[in-house]
């Protein structure tokens, strides 16, 4: 699973996700991609599940790129613990995804395989996504 090697601070504020993505909104590497349509925190585990679903459907062909990195630690308190006494311990890593952000890019497979792979990957994510194709140039 993706996670930072080292961080400056152990814990982060929860934060809120406002507005649409300002960068990473178009395909940079591949011919196909998966674009987020909703704002949400996506965990490293969900990204890994999506990545596996996509890779397995592509059957060792083609190439894929992950355009997001989960670098926000999320803390949780243990069960049956009273409120207070400080913030809980970091439990997982997430990425704050804004609508319009490209999550994955694929290349080297047919459009039909890429679409099916992206649909399987999108099913592992907590947000609505759409399959996008590089615009035709000719």
């Amino acid at each position: 699973m993706l996670q930072p090697n080292r961080t400056k601070y152990r814990k982060a504020f929860k934060g809120r996700i406002h507005g649409n993505a300002k960068g990473a909104t178009s395909l940079n590497f591949g011919a196909f991609g998966l674009k987020a349509m909703e704002p949400e925190r996506v965990s490293a585990r969900q990204l890994e599940a999506a990545r596996r679903a996509i890779v397995r459907h592509m059957k060792r062909q083609g190439k894929m790129w992950i355009r997001v990195f989960p670098d926000v630690p999320v803390s949780k308190k243990p069960t049956e613990v009273r409120m207070g006494k400080g913030k809980g311990t970091p439990e997982l890593w997430v990425v704050r995804v804004k609508p319009g952000r490209i999550l994955f890019e694929l290349d080297g497979v047919s459009p039909a395989v890429a679409k099916e792979a992206c649909e399987l990957g999108a099913a592992k994510l907590p947000i609505a996504c759409k399959f996008i194709v590089r615009p035709t140039e000719a």
């Binding site: 961080t7 190439k63 439990e91």
Partner: peptide, 28 residues
């Protein structure tokens, strides 16, 4: 060369948690 591999998850890789990564970080 194709970079896609069907990886077999190792127990050691799965055991890495944010707590472990935080422990590896130097003191701020």
């Amino acid at each position: 060369a194709p970079t896609l591999k069907l990886e077999i998850e190792t127990p050691a890789a799965a055991a890495v948690t944010p707590e472990a990564a935080a422990a590896a970080t130097p003191a701020p």
